[in-house]
């Protein structure tokens, strides 16, 4: 009986997994350029979704126009964060910068609470709510949007990092910051760009998941934690790892909820995460970090 639900689990695992993958990508991009773990990643997601809600419901823009504008809003927030507190910090200690992102996260969350209120908000699906029945699984059209858009983002990012000069420069910075600066890459510009990119990707994740899960000012915290866990699972800083880690975490979570207990869904996901950390701390696709001793 529970086996007949397998396809359904698979679909919902893939759905939340896509979102975790996008958030994990955001973590990875900033980490590669700056070495920082950005604790405000979840707030990018939330702000993108909330902006989309305001643009469609208050301003009355069609989805097609509101979507890019909301993504721009996420990018703008990322940009402001980098040129503001991160760049002005009188320290280059990673710990201090990470704690600044914690402060930024609290500030954004509370600002959002004053703008959008405390009650969770929802967004209309992009194309109706009539589920497609496929064998044993009912698939919401929004799920297809999520999978499709995630795929597009991942492919575009892949092309950006492998084909464009700017993308290659960012990879060079990730590889060796000093070396990149020596061959004339503007490391500061790349750092800024990493925040802008992460802000945009975060916003996309928020916009596409909101029709299914709703969004509130504080929802970014848990999403960021899951994205973070996904990034570790795949190997921190690895793009391929982020995507696979995200999908894996989504799958673990939904199967855990289905077969073990839904109350312990999150605990189960993080338990697996801890196990991976103990057995293979570099993640599934992480580079082996050789300790030079």
């Amino acid at each position: 009986m529970i086996w007949s639900q397998l396809p359904q689990f698979f679909v919902s695992g893939l759905t939340s997994g896509s979102i975790y993958a996008l958030i994990a990508l955001g973590f990875g991009i900033i980490h590669n350029a700056t070495g920082i773990v950005n604790f405000a990643q979840g707030e990018f997601v939330m702000i993108g979704a909330m902006t989309m809600i305001s643009l469609t419901q208050v301003v009355g823009l069609p989805v097609l126009t509101a979507f890019p504008l909301a993504v721009l809003a996420g990018m703008a927030v990322g940009w402001l964060m980098e040129i503001g507190p991160i760049r002005r910090a009188r320290s280059d200690s990673i710990l201090i910068l990470v704690m600044i992102t914690v402060g930024a996260s609290i500030t954004m969350r509370e600002t959002a609470m004053h703008i959008w209120g405390k009650t969770p908000r929802t967004l209309a699906s992009f194309s109706g709510d009539e589920p497609l029945v496929l064998g044993n699984a009912a698939i919401l059209p929004q799920t297809l949007w999520i999978l499709g858009i995630t795929l597009v983002v991942v492919v575009l990012l892949g092309l950006f990092f492998s084909r464009t000069m700017v993308g290659k420069a960012m990879r060079a910075v990730a590889e060796n910051r000093r070396g990149a600066a020596l061959i004339g890459i503007g490391v500061h510009r790349m750092k800024m760009l990493s925040f802008v990119l992460s802000g945009g990707i975060g916003a996309v994740a928020g916009i596409i998941i909101t029709p299914i899960t709703t969004m509130s000012y504080s929802a970014g915290v848990m999403l960021a934690l899951k994205g973070f866990a996904a990034a570790i699972l795949g190997g921190y800083g690895s793009m391929k790892g982020a995507v696979i880690g995200g999908l894996l975490l989504g799958a673990i979570e939904t199967f855990g909820a289905g077969f073990v207990s839904s109350a312990y869904k999150d605990a189960f996901a993080f338990l697996i995460f801890l196990l991976v950390l103990f057995i293979r701390p570099t993640g599934l696709f992480g580079k082996e970090e050789v300790k030079r001793v």
């Binding site: 910090a89 600044i100 402060g103 509370e110």
Partner: peptide, 21 residues
């Protein structure tokens, strides 16, 4: 009241940006 946490976040950022030590 409602602005307490917002100020907390701002003060936290401010202290870390200007007094990182």
């Amino acid at each position: 009241r409602d602005y307490a946490l917002l100020l907390y976040g701002l003060i936290l950022m401010g202290v870390l940006v200007f007094f990182p030590e």
